[in-house]
Amino acid sequence: MALLELRNISKIYHLGGEEIRALDDVSLDIGEGEFISIIGPSGSGKSTLMHIVGCLDTPSKGTVRLDGVEAQNASQTQLAHLRNKKIGFVFQFFNLLPKLNVVQNVELPMIYAGLSAKERRERALKALEAVEMGNRLKNRPSQLSGGQQQRVAIARALVNDPKIILADEPTGNLDTHTGEVILALFRRLSAEGRTVILVTHNPEIAAVTPRRIEIRNGKIADKVDERLAGLDRTKPGSPAPISVA
């Protein structure tokens, strides 16, 4: 049994009589410990898929099974619990709370997990060390660069020790160098045995992951576009893929 089982997932929006199928009958299995990248053109439904996998959104049709739990049968409270314990979500635009400083932001999921203040502080510091942000504890998000904010967001996603890490274009707003630092972080997480799913437009990043899924028009493409996935090495000028080390 896979860690994540999506069966015939559709997400349909109705906009003024028009039907938008953000996801159209998607079925997908993801096993424990997999490192996956999701690629696809803008508007193809990648974020929608991630939200459904992350229990932030519910599909219009189909079933989601997450670590043995049927998400469509779960109550709002149970879903909140799942998000809190099993899933670490890294958003494209960080989604840190501007009024809280770095440590407080990282402590947030642990507050809802009911951890003691002492334990929260310890674990937050450890997570921030792991993303090399241990020296900016008292800063507000607005006082940090994009890459630093993204690292704080990753620390927040990690802090409850989730099985699954979902990252929606975590490097989309970052320069190449910072992107590489962040990517190295995800590779380390994967090496630690966590299931990591990344959405990316960057072929170099997609090339790193052992499994790639391409989404087009709300469906999973049969064959992955080699150029998008960074596998087409024949094309002149395309950068060499980063080796999986």
């Binding site: 709002q76 619990h81 979500f89 958003f91 709370l97 809802y112 997990a113 927040r156």
Partner: peptide, 16 residues
């Protein structure tokens, strides 16, 4: 609204 969304996304339930 965004703050509430973020809190819920990291695990706050309705009661919280």
């Amino acid at each position: 609204i965004r703050e509430i969304g973020i809190r819920k996304a990291v695990g706050a339930d309705g009661a919280d």
